[in-house]
């Protein structure tokens, strides 16, 4: 509504501007005039309230308490300036976890996107039975994260896990939840496993929105299937891929919480974890509200920076049909 309101009246603007995605043709936006200036605010109020209550207020709280050292029993807080930040950033443990988080994020995002794309490309070729294939993979995604974590945990279990037996075949003693590297492997595997179907669905629908005639034109222009994929399909898939990149980074940073929680719950000492889990651990288990707040503010800044980089650098190169 806002961008058409500025344009002069007439039928032209909507007809000339093509929709960003090729498939759903944009319905012409309606222009609505409000008699009272307050009315529009009334409509957005619920949304603003949600954002304020669940985002701005806790954020301000977090920033505020990150400058205080709180009594573990809640009897008072003393102002300590940036001590909480200094302490977090200089802690060797914090840096190790930050490094693990970066690696974990890159690995999970890369693998989940790569495998999702590969499966989608293969599925796209199988025209018949496509819906059964899709349903099977959506079903996996429908399983809630803790359950996925549990199933993953079961696979990697010390006593009943089939992966332990599998590793044993290769002479490796797999000890998830005890050995740092083994746990890291299990975390990455389960996190990727859970995210693949989501990526698959989006990639598949992206592939299917590439016009048939464009593919056929490419078929006449290039003999090599790989070239057609690289030169035609992939660029047309870029908007989907960019969207998924943002989603997957956010996922690997935040939504893997439940998986980590299930896997390392009772024995966090020598196990890998992400920064988000560390915030939770220090704040709710360690009752160090100040330190935990400082960490979450750092995390917020990192995510903000990442988002800006993504949109500035990558989106500029993405071609929207």
């Amino acid at each position: 509504m806002t961008d058409t309101a500025a344009l002069p009246p007439g039928p032209a603007p909507q007809a000339v501007r093509r929709p960003r995605k090729p498939h759903p043709p944009a319905a012409p936006a309606k222009r609505v005039q409000f008699d009272r200036p307050l009315t529009p605010w009334l409509f957005v109020l619920p949304q603003l309230l949600v954002v304020a209550i669940f985002f701005y207020w806790p954020s301000v709280q977090a920033v505020n308490s990150s400058f205080y050292l709180e009594d573990p029993f809640g009897f008072g807080a003393s102002f300590v300036g940036i001590d909480n930040y200094r302490e977090a950033l200089s802690s060797r443990e914090y840096r190790t976890i930050a490094a693990f988080t970066a690696g974990f994020c890159a690995l999970v995002t890369g693998l989940a996107l790569g495998i999702g794309l590969l499966l989608a490309v293969k599925a796209d070729k199988v025209i018949r039975g496509a819906s059964a294939y899709k349903t099977a993979l959506i079903a996996v995604y429908a399983i809630a994260p803790p359950v996925t974590g549990l199933i993953g945990m079961m696979f990697f279990d010390m006593h009943i896990g089939p992966f332990k037996d599998l590793a044993a075949l290769f002479g490796h003693d797999l000890r998830v939840g005890i050995d740092y590297d083994d746990t890291a492997l299990a975390l990455v595997t389960v996190a990727v496993w859970k995210q693949i179907p989501y990526n698959f669905i989006f990639f598949l629908s992206g592939l299917q929105s590439v016009p048939v005639a464009v593919r056929e034109a490419a078929l006449l222009d290039a003999r090599s299937g790989w070239r057609r994929f690289r030169d035609i399909t992939l660029p047309l898939l870029a908007p989907t891929a960019f969207f998924l990149l943002v989603i997957n980074i956010t996922y690997s940073l935040f939504d893997t919480f439940a998986i980590i929680d299930v896997m390392v719950k009772d024995k966090p000492a020598n196990n890998p974890m992400t920064l988000v889990y560390k915030v939770y651990l220090d704040g709710f288990k360690g009752n160090d509200i100040g330190g935990s707040s400082a960490q979450s503010v750092i995390l917020m800044l990192v995510v903000a920076a990442l988002t800006i980089v993504q949109f500035r650098l990558i989106e500029r190169r993405v071609h929207y049909g």
């Binding site: 090729p22 016009p211 005639a213 464009v214 056929e216 034109a217 490419a218 035609i232 047309l236």
Partner: peptide, 8 residues
């Protein structure tokens, strides 16, 4: 092609 099928 009818709808030209240009590479967008």
């Amino acid at each position: 092609f009818q709808n030209y099928a240009l590479y967008p």
